[in-house]
Nucleic acid binder design. Structure first.
Lengths: 300, 300
DNA sequence: TTCCACGATACCTCCAGGGTATGGCAAGGC
DNA sequence: GCCTTGCCATACCCTGGAGGTATCGTGGAA
């Protein structure tokens, strides 16, 4: 499959007529028909129902159309940004983070670093795995995630272990108790983030799996707050880091777990063996203060 | 540019050696060199620095690598999901929504619909524009967004107008006041969601633009809570729908605006002229109750 | 019944992807 | 200092496949 397949498909999906789509694409109708058939063979899924006067998208065709558009859009954006970047001329300090660590002290680190002159920070939402890859490739300089990853080129430091709490719909039978993972496993689970993986979602699944507990995943959400919205909807329960519970939300109650040791680490990742730059030293100092504050319970 | 360019590029970026990359790709080294050069010409950006013993990624190359991997991954996922869907056999009621509407009553609509037997809901995070496209294509059946879009095939109903509030870092000079948009325009603005566009971000930009106010966008974030994290970081301020302020967060204060009429609509979009199915009727009834509750100030 | 719109197939052309051969450069080893 | 080696870039070549035209088959509209 090539991009031209996606491009051709999207135009056909919009026109629902191969002849008109071919005109838009400045090509003849028969080769377009063949390219669409080639795409369908590759996917092993019919994307259109053929009729004597035009086409109708099948449900898989509708699904594929939605995502093909997103893919083409992301490609456009990536190309444009890459071109833009090629014209830019300055060194930046890149920080990668998973969104769930942005509820605690990380914003204060960013605030501290921003007070330094002549430093441009870039912040990228990346999974921990992506952070490790990005560090190795030099795309970021520091990463904050939740998963321990064994990589000889990257050093990971556990800043602290954050307890996980259950997020339950208000009125849930377990409200006001300290539920066990076994009790929670009887409910449906809402996972976040949906993609990319592996992520905190997989860590959560691992918690249950290691205790021989089977869970039913009711839904996945991209954003943590969307997951909480789904909890309000009654689709199930979710597990969140403790800091998240500080944002009280209608329809949600949080509960500490009865099981001990149910924590998620906040992990700082750096490249191994790299003498720290001045910026990195400054970041490390700010981090030490933040970790000490967190350990001693001093919040801003 | 085709997908093979991205595939070749990613292998080269991993190996940093064209000869080894060619071996991995089961092709000869000279055509691989040409394909990479072709990609660089297309981008108008050098992706590698050449050395006598291998390559080094340039910063644009690093950036492009990160995104190319995401694109290829999304393609893989899309292909797999499309194949899976082709084997599936059932009709679903699809709801599209922008994340910021999931802080209010939408979760209750989902909860209500889930009580109906034999109904499978799918929930998709989509911009309002994407919702209109998805409705027309039959990919979803109802959408909840923030932008009015004139489309002859889609009916939009404004459920209610939600006031926008300023989210300020605690300690901000405007804390405890009712700031004007002009005052806010003097600060940096944090926008969300970053992509895709147009979205609530553009609606916010429009608020300032229509009053002849220029804003400086300090950063964009994908998630609303990440944007709030950036506010905590001191990067700037952001505007959020009123419902969001119910989640109090350390380091953030919310302020009603002095200007009147600064609201964001919650809009329900449906296909035009379609006789409502039983499910659609049920959804409409639940919505009416929710809207009435919201108007009369009765919260659950 | 006839006409037309439309997608699918058969056959054809030619270009671009991938091949081999080879050159140039620089780092490493002796 | 010289030779060897690793590696990327260019020149030239071949052929498979993308895209072309011609035409057929089907079904809806007039």
């Amino acid at each position: 499959m090539e991009l031209r397949h996606l491009r051709y498909f999207c135009v056909v999906a919009e026109e629902l007529n191969l002849t008109r789509a071919a005109e838009r694409l400045h090509m003849a109708q028969p080769p377009l028909t063949r390219q669409i058939k080639q795409l369908e063979r590759h996917l092993g899924a019919p994307l259109f129902q053929r009729h004597s006067r035009g086409l109708v998208l099948t449900p898989p065709g509708q699904f594929f159309h939605e995502h093909a558009l997103q893919i083409l859009e992301k490609i456009d954006v990536t190309v444009t940004s890459t071109r833009h970047m090629a014209r830019s001329k300055h060194r930046i300090f890149g920080i990668g983070f998973v969104p769930s660590v942005f509820y605690g002290q990380l914003p204060l680190l960013v605030r501290g670093l921003r007070q330094k002159d002549d430093l441009e920070l870039t912040l990228a939402e990346l999974t921990t795995v992506q952070q490790v890859q990005a560090l190795k490739a030099g795309r970021i300089d520091m990463g904050f995630g939740r998963l321990l990853i064994d990589d000889p080129e990257v050093v990971q430091e556990v800043l602290f272990e954050e307890p996980m709490m259950a997020a339950l719909p208000a009125g849930h039978a377990l409200e006001g108790t300290r539920p066990t993972l076994a009790q929670l496993a009887e409910d449906h689970l809402i996972l976040f983030p949906a993609t990319p993986r592996p992520s905190l979602a997989d860590m959560v699944l691992g918690l249950f799996r290691r205790r021989g507990l089977k869970v039913q995943v009711a839904q996945e959400a991209n954003e943590l707050q969307t997951a909480l919205g789904l909890v309000v909807s009654g689709l199930g329960i979710t597990l969140v880091p403790e800091q998240v519970s500080r944002l009280t939300r209608d329809g949600i109650v949080y509960a500490y777990l009865a099981d001990s040791g149910i924590t998620t680490p906040i992990i700082c990742s750096r490249r191994k063996g790299e003498p720290p730059s001045e910026v990195m030293q400054a970041a490390n100092e700010i981090l030490e203060v933040l970790v000490e504050n967190r350990r001693s319970g001093r919040y801003p």
